[in-house]
Simulated assay, not measured.
Amino acid sequence: MRENRGILGARTRPGSDTAPRPREPVGLYRDVEAAMVETSRTLRRFLSERRAQALAVAPAYADLWEAVSGQVGGKLVRPRLTVASYLGFGGIDVNAIASVAAAQELLHTAMLVHDDVLDADEVRRGAPNITGTYRARLAGQGVFGAAAEHQLLGAGLLGGDLALSAAFELLASSSANPAVVVEAVRALARTVATTVAGELLDVGGELLSPFEVDPLLVAELKTAMYSFCGPLQVGALLAHAPASASAHLDRFGSSIGVAFQLVDDELGVFGSPAATGKSVLSDLRAGKRTELLRLTYLLTDDDGRAVLARHVGDPDLDDDGADEVRRVMLRSGARDRVRALAAGAARSARQTATQHLPAALADYLSAFVDELGERNH
């Protein structure tokens, strides 16, 4: 395999001397891709059936299902991690894991929809999200102002709720041992609760100065939990992995979740919208309390803080103002510091995987860390 020289540092591949080898690395890659075919099919079939059932209730209900379905997709990272964990720990029933893995994507969709409502964003992956879609539809009907805003809030909240309930329904439909499925449902509920805690701190941070927030804690509770720890844990649960695996998966998931969020926050300011589908103004306009912003305030001088005070949090911030903020971030060394933190978290994730997880799974997860480091700027 190639060495990675991206933002998260060079790839290291020490072998595991403590974990069994349920599958060889090449075999695991092949089997994950094969299982993902069934997982994607399960997800599409579920959404299609729910849209059809909704149409029998009311056209408006079917429209909401259609809008939610339109938010599902992308790289399917969370289902893929679920499948990899399951197969990496020796699971063999693809049908049993498919619905569990697909449920992780619906949970992700629910979190994105609600997150967009909280952030007042109407674009996701370069296209209108649920509220953006509904705004265009309402405008075509001549509905504007407060009446439209009320409908948009309803669509976003109810759409997210619909995706969340669907995640639990799909998970509960797994053909795995019923007792294990119950445990998986409980695990998903804990994942949601922990993510809510992170979201609450994230939203509450808007009222605090950048010196008073803890963005890394938010990343652990929010991004790491539902994107990495939860999917890996539920895959291991269905595979009847040894109890000792839980702590190692949590450690890997927390580390890579922090690294992922740090990279994401940098892309939110310095990235290429054409490559990422994400605005480089929205986080600055919102004054989002990221680790990048916290470190910039901490490391810059009074002149730099004056620039930040003038531009960060300005809803009308333009490209010129954003460029001024970026220059402060660069001169202060804050971006370099964030990159170092991300690389350190990625190294920790690799070490955890290679030292404590089955060799094939460790290799798979290490490659995933590499891909994270190569995200577009």
Rank of each mutant, 00 (worst) to 15 (best):
P215N: 04
S209H: 13
C229V: 12
L237G: 05
A187N: 07
A219T: 04
A189S: 14
L237N: 10
G235Y: 05
L221D: 02
T191C: 14
R190D: 14
V203W: 03
V192I: 10
V213T: 14
A236G: 14
Q233P: 01
G204K: 06
T194Q: 14
F228M: 03
D202Q: 13
T195H: 08
A236I: 05
G235H: 12
E220F: 00
A197L: 15
L217P: 02
L207M: 09
L216S: 09
E206K: 08
L188R: 10
M225Q: 13
G235N: 12
L208R: 14
F211S: 12
V196P: 07
D214Y: 02
A193M: 08
V203C: 14
V192N: 06
G198S: 05
L216I: 12
L221S: 01
V234N: 07
G235K: 11
T223Q: 00
P210I: 09
M225K: 10
A189D: 12
M225T: 11
V192F: 07
E220Y: 03
V196R: 04
E199V: 03
V218S: 05
A219W: 03
Q233I: 05
V213I: 13
L200C: 14
T223F: 01
L188W: 13
A236H: 15
S227P: 02
A219P: 00
G230R: 00
R186C: 06
A197T: 15
L237E: 01
E212F: 07
V218P: 04
A189R: 13
F211C: 04
A187L: 15
Q233L: 12
S227N: 10
A193K: 04
A193T: 02
T194K: 11
Q233W: 09
L217M: 09
A224Y: 05
C229Y: 01
G204V: 04
Q233V: 06
A189Y: 08
R186T: 06
S227K: 01
L232Y: 14
V203S: 07
A189G: 11
V234R: 10
A189I: 09
V185H: 06
F211N: 10
G235S: 14
L237Y: 04
L232F: 07
R190N: 10
A224D: 05
V213N: 03
L208M: 09
L201P: 00
F211E: 15
V203R: 10
A187T: 13
L208G: 02
V234K: 05
P215M: 04
L200Y: 15
P215G: 10
E206S: 15
A219N: 05
P210W: 06
V196I: 15
L208Y: 05
L216G: 02
K222G: 03
E220V: 04
L207G: 06
D202H: 07
V185A: 09
L188Q: 13
F211R: 15
Q233R: 13
A187H: 09
P231N: 08
G198W: 00
M225S: 11
T194V: 11
